[in-house]
Amino acid sequence: MAVMTYLEAIRETLRQELRRDDRIIVYGEDVGVRGGVFRVTEGLQAEFGEQRVIDSPLAEAAIIGTAIGAAVNGLRPVPEIQFSDFIFPAINQIVQEAARIRYRSNGTFGVPMVIRAPFGGGVHGALYHSQSVEAFFAHVPGLKVVIPSTPYDAKGLLAAAIQDEDPVLYFEHKAAYRSLKGDVPDERYLIPIGKADLKRPGKHVSIITYGLMVSYALKAAETLDKEGISVEILDLRSIRPLDVEAILDTAKKTGKVLMVHEDNLTGGIGGEVSALIAEHALFYLDAPIVRLAGPDVPAMPYSPPLEHAFMVTPEKITEAARKLAKF
């Protein structure tokens, strides 16, 4: 057991997995010699060589397209998209091919591929380095989408994603890389995909969220606890598939749900979670479901005040949860 940052947990998991199974390959832009722009893959090429930790051309469609081919042919590729903002050139490969090969081949072929991609804003990344893209992929049957919120989950979810026989998108929040630290066991362990994690039990308001927002929600809960408002926090961990049972459990328990994500409001995961609750737990609701999310503007602004205005912060979560508790 060691205390690691979120980033170190991902790196050490990749190292452990690369050692465990030589079918696993890591590749992407600058992941080799440079060790990745965030240094996630630092040292891996030195240990595993250019055949397994590969610097790729600056061409996302090619990265994913070749990863699909490698996966279908027996490797277990873990390609990296340098910033999730740049995943869109590869969307045709991901949605049309990777997601469908198992279905299209009547189960004969699968794509055991994990696409890692840093995402999220609040790091002065401006328009092309700040986006949250999870909702695009959560819409697609055949894909799995996981977003860890702690170093511990980062390890367990990455190992489970690599173990999975089908394509998994693994999104890492850039602001979480070095700000989140926590205990990470040395041995390999898996966190089942599709299982949410009850971070904190409470009785007045449920906050359902994922990724970096989990730590923000926990801060908000601390503040509200002093005011006598007891907040329950559910970390979805997987946004596809969703842990419907856990979502309904917490909604039924408190009757008041605040859905939080940094991704844009419209069409975000919050809408799907809200619909599930409305469909299956209506008669437990004591208040309208509230969504706190990034605003529906085209992109994260560069101007620091505007970027701050865009971001969901612990203060905004506190305020929204307080208002809901008092409803």
Binding site: G255, L282, F283, Y284, L285, D286, A287
Partner: peptide, 16 residues
């Protein structure tokens, strides 16, 4: 003087 705008409006949970 108090705001009683929500009196008489019951949530599904309250009704159930």
């Amino acid at each position: 003087e108090t705001d009683d705008g929500q009196r008489g409006r019951y949530s599904p949970a309250v009704r159930r």
